[in-house]
Design a protein around this nucleic acid. Structure first.
Lengths: 126, 126
DNA sequence: CCTTACCTTTACGTTAACGTCAAGTCGCGG
DNA sequence: CCGCGACTTGACGTTAACGTAAAGGTAAGG
C-alpha cells in the first residue's frame, strides 16, 4: 500500500471536475466534504476526491444532495460501533433497492420511447 | 378501437396520481398538459392522463420538467410536416442515448455500493 | 333557496443548489 | 517591498417546482 498523501487545492478540483469553488464550499457546508485547513486555505485529500466523484455522479442521476449524503455514510465508518455499521449497511441495502427500481423504470421509459419512435417512423412512410 | 371519451376532473387525477391541484395547473402553465374547458372548469382527457404518467415517471427519474417536455414532443405530432417528425425523432434518439448512459451510470453506482457493503460486512466479522 | 363540495384565479412564499458580487488575506517571484 | 494570482469569508440574488392562503364561481342535493 503506497502512502498516497496527495493534497489538492480548491482550484485543482475545480479544473479536474468542472465545478465552481462555490459548489465545493457548499458541499463542505453540508458536510459532504471535509478538507483540511492549513492556515485559512483548504486542502483536499484523495478521500475528498473520491467523495466528490460520487457526489457528482449521484447528482447526474437525479439524487438530491441529502440522498447522496446518506450514500456517503457508507464511507464514514470512522471506528464506529458494530451497531452503527449494521445500520449503515441496512440503509445501503435500501438504497440499492431504490437504484434497482430506478433502473427498471428507466428501462420502461426507454421501451416506451422506442415504441413511440417506431410509430413515428411508420407514420413517415405514410 | 373503442371510443374512449373519458373526461377527468382535476380532483380525479389528484387522487389517482397523488399530486396536488397546484401541480397539475403548473404543468398546464408549462404546456405539458392541455385540459379542455367547460365553462371555467378543467376536463382532462385520456391523453392528458397518459402524459401525466410520463411526466411523473420522468420526475422520479430525475429529469427536469424541461427535459420531460422534450420527450413529450414525441406525442405531439398533430399533423406536423415530415421534417418536423424527423426532427422529433432525432431528438428521441438523443434522449435514448442519454437514458442508456444513465442506466450504465446507475449500474456503476450500484456496483460501487455493493463493493462497499462487502467491505463493511468483512469489517463486521473483525 | 341554501349549503356543501369542488373548483377557479391571483399572488406571494418556500426550498434546494448553487451564482455572483465585494472586500479582505496569503505566499511568492521580481 | 510590491504586485499578482489564488484563495478566503460574508451576504444577497436566482431558478425550478411547486406550497399556500385569500377570495370567489358553480352545480347538485335537500
Amino acid at each position: 500500500m503506497p502512502e498516497t498523501k496527495a493534497r489538492y487545492r480548491i482550484g485543482d478540483l475545480v479544473r479536474a471536475f468542472d465545478v465552481t469553488p462555490r459548489t465545493l464550499r457548499y458541499y463542505e457546508e453540508l458536510g459532504l466534504l471535509r478538507p483540511e485547513r492549513r492556515g485559512q486555505q483548504r486542502y483536499y485529500s484523495d478521500r475528498d476526491r473520491v467523495r466528490l466523484r460520487l457526489i457528482l455522479r449521484g447528482r447526474r442521476l437525479g439524487f438530491s444532495l441529502e440522498e447522496i449524503a446518506k450514500i456517503l455514510e457508507l464511507y464514514d465508518h470512522d471506528r464506529s460501533g458494530k451497531t452503527q455499521i449494521r445500520e449503515v449497511l441496512r440503509m445501503g441495502e435500501r438504497k440499492l433497492k431504490e437504484i434497482e427500481a430506478q433502473i427498471e423504470e428507466l428501462k420502461n421509459l426507454k421501451a416506451e420511447i422506442e415504441e413511440r419512435a417506431r410509430e413515428l417512423r411508420r407514420l413517415l412512410e405514410e
